[in-house]
């Protein structure tokens, strides 16, 4: 299993990346951590003519940064650096909780957060988390840059909404508000595997009412984000949570069969994991509210 030949480019500035993409367009793939791309190349499931290696860009940040209500990560921020970041733990607790589920330590040491978002794998954790947090990405090209909300970022399996000449220079994770609570749940056969189903929950407390948004992975062509109807305090004493999740699961998710799980099993998982995530996130939102 060796990759097919390609032309390798090593730009040193973001501008050089822009210029290369302007010239090469769809012929080129961006190579950052390579932890999703290189297996595909080794298996010759894909053989792009050009690879643009970001690893030698000058003056790139190595870790997350705080910027205008967001924790931002640049193109060379490794997943392990986010995992170890106190800033992320404090400001984007859902991302911190989720990192533990993303592949394995050695993969996270090379893999980048931006790369995982750009890869747009509907079974991956980070796109679903970005979507449920209503984060955004910054795309750039030789003609300028634009900010894309997470909800518009993913177009299909392994397909993002960037133009051929664009690439991602930043992913922006909204800082958690005091009244918010979060939870992440997934079921994978082995630790670190792609999950059969996973879900991220964001809960917000306003008085006695809790609003919860869910972001599912592995349940459609793209991460599926949805909001439950507002839940009163009594909902958590009854099966109302389960019922609300069930309605969302039945109505909005579109899983497929594969060798590990059927549609029915995935739907079951989506209901159970979703309900657990809702309850956990809501409980944390409660606590968060009391703290403030």
């Amino acid at each position: 299993m060796k990759p097919a030949p390609f032309t390798y480019h090593r730009p040193e500035t973001r501008g050089e990346v822009d210029a290369l993409l302007a010239e090469l367009g769809s012929e080129a793939k961006i190579l950052a951590g390579g932890q999703s791309l290189i297996p595909i190349l080794n298996m010759r499931l894909s053989s792009p003519a050009h690879l643009i290696d970001l690893n030698h860009l000058h003056d790139e940040t190595a870790g997350p940064a705080l910027d205008d209500g967001h924790v931002t990560v640049g193109p060379l921020v490794r997943q392990s650096s986010v995992e170890r970041s106190e800033l992320v733990t404090e400001r984007v607790p859902l991302l911190a909780e989720t990192m533990d589920f993303v592949a394995h330590p050695a993969i996270r040491n090379r893999g980048t957060v931006v790369g995982s978002i750009a890869h747009a794998d509907p079974a991956a954790e980070l796109p679903a988390v970005l979507a449920v947090l209503r984060g955004e990405v910054v795309a750039r090209s030789a003609t300028g840059r634009r900010t894309i909300p997470a909800g518009e970022c993913f177009r299909g399996p392994l397909e993002n909404s960037l133009e051929d000449t664009e690439w991602l220079e930043e992913v922006r994770w909204p800082v958690a508000a005091a009244d918010q609570g979060f939870a992440f749940e997934e079921f994978a056969r082995r630790s670190g595997d792609y999950a059969l189903c996973g879900v991220a929950a964001r809960a917000e407390r306003a008085g006695d009412t809790t609003t919860v948004a869910l972001g599912y992975l592995g349940m459609g062509d793209v991460p599926v984000c949805t909001e439950l109807p507002p839940l009163g305090a009594s909902a958590f004493e009854t099966d109302e949570v389960e019922d609300a999740v069930a309605r969302v699961v039945e109505g909005q998710l579109d899983p497929v069969d594969d060798i590990h799980a059927t549609v029915a099993f995935r739907t079951h998982l989506a209901r159970r994991l979703g309900a657990t995530a809702v309850r956990r996130a809501a409980a944390k939102a409660d606590t968060a509210g009391q703290d403030s």
Partner: peptide
């Protein structure tokens, strides 16, 4: 990836 030899976990 799909033939699941168990890890230590």
């Amino acid at each position: 990836m799909d033939f699941l030899i168990p890890y230590a976990t």
